[in-house]
Design a protein around this nucleic acid. Structure first.
Lengths: 204, 204
DNA sequence: GTCTATAAGACGATAGAC
DNA sequence: GTCTATCGTCTTATAGAC
């Protein structure tokens, strides 16, 4: 009963610490390739202490994935059907690229899960993700039909935005190794290139 | 001494069977997430028998990766500096997309290795891959300088071909889930879309 | 060459002291 | 809440029969 807020605050802090450490590990090695020992060491806690806050290794992973899905779709949700079509799509691309820059671990966690056949996230793929994609693809198709942007394939247009932007998070070590000077930030040039690419694609 | 060719033929056949099974498993779960039991079961052999043909789990993985690098760069090697610039780049994109269609497991094996920080392939990335990329980026830069194709970033142009084409192998289950009718082949529409995309990007 | 049996250690999870 | 100790299982690799 004494200081319940303090206990809660410590609990939340430890849960956050564990999830952050787990994101480090799971995003790199996937679910099967990650161990509680690695996560415990990264979190600076003992292994049994992890399992005091989460019932199992899988529960930690599931928690990360469901948190991820919530924010992962935000950039696409913000695509405004009433906005200026070309500007809306370019702004969506920029938001996705910004997510790759600011949340590369989340992008790699997602990539790892998809590569493994999406066993723990297929419901969300066929549900939330597909529903939102269907909705926004219809908006884009409407813009194409109205002659606001050049006609192409709405779904593959969205796929191309996903793959091009997530590439800079998922294949970060390759991008930096090929560009050399690995301390340099590849994102400014990437943004400029992608703006050119999509501007030309969408121009009527 | 009796029938050495037969023994060799059996050995080669078993090595091939093991490598094919290992490709199935490693491409899905990565190195750390895969087990010899899975590979043995997929190959229809016993676990000790695997280790009769390869000294260790890591040796199987390394063998797969070095075989992969040999063929992975072929499409880019075939980019002809003396060809017609726009046609050469489009043909390269088509060759890469064809590799994603015909060798999706190899693409996912590569993606898994890069996601994990490329621990067993970084030398090849900084060596063969970077050298070839530098060489072909210079060719593309030359074409841009000569006004044969629209100016952009040669390296990011290559990155965009890699990410767009490999996406259809690496994120295959997502692509099919979002498109619905998962038996349908997404590659024809993908090829058409990517041809449009790069045609417009390169047009002077 | 292929198998069963097993060593030696890593792994997820639990028990119980503090 | 956090720890040490430990259980039972999984995993890589080896030993040795056939």
């Amino acid at each position: 009963m004494a200081e319940p807020q303090t206990r809660t605050r410590i609990q939340k802090k430890n849960r956050t610490t564990i999830l952050d450490a787990a994101l480090d590990v799971f995003s790199q090695f996937g679910f099967r390739g990650s161990t509680l020992d690695q996560i415990a060491k990264a979190a600076g806690l003992s292994k049994p202490n992890l399992l005091y806050y989460f019932p199992s290794k899988e529960a930690i992973h599931v928690e990360l994935l469901s948190c991820l899905m919530d924010t992962w779709l935000d950039p696409l949700r913000d695509l405004d059907p009433n906005g200026e079509p070309r500007a809306e799509i370019l702004a969506y691309m920029r938001r996705k690229l910004e997510m790759s820059r600011n949340f590369p671990r989340e992008s790699r966690l997602f990539a790892n899960e998809i590569l493994q056949g999406a066993p723990r996230i297929m419901d969300a793929i066929k549900g939330e993700l597909k529903d939102l994609t269907d909705e926004k693809a219809a908006v884009i198709q409407g813009w194409m039909d109205a002659g606001k942007i050049a006609p192409s394939h709405p779904y593959h247009l969205l796929f191309s935005i996903w793959s091009l932007t997530q590439h800079y998070a998922d294949f970060d070590v390759q991008v930096r190794a090929v560009l050399g000077n690995e301390g340099d930030d590849p994102f400014p040039a990437a943004e400029q290139y992608l703006e050119t690419l999509f501007s030309k694609l969408l121009a009527v």
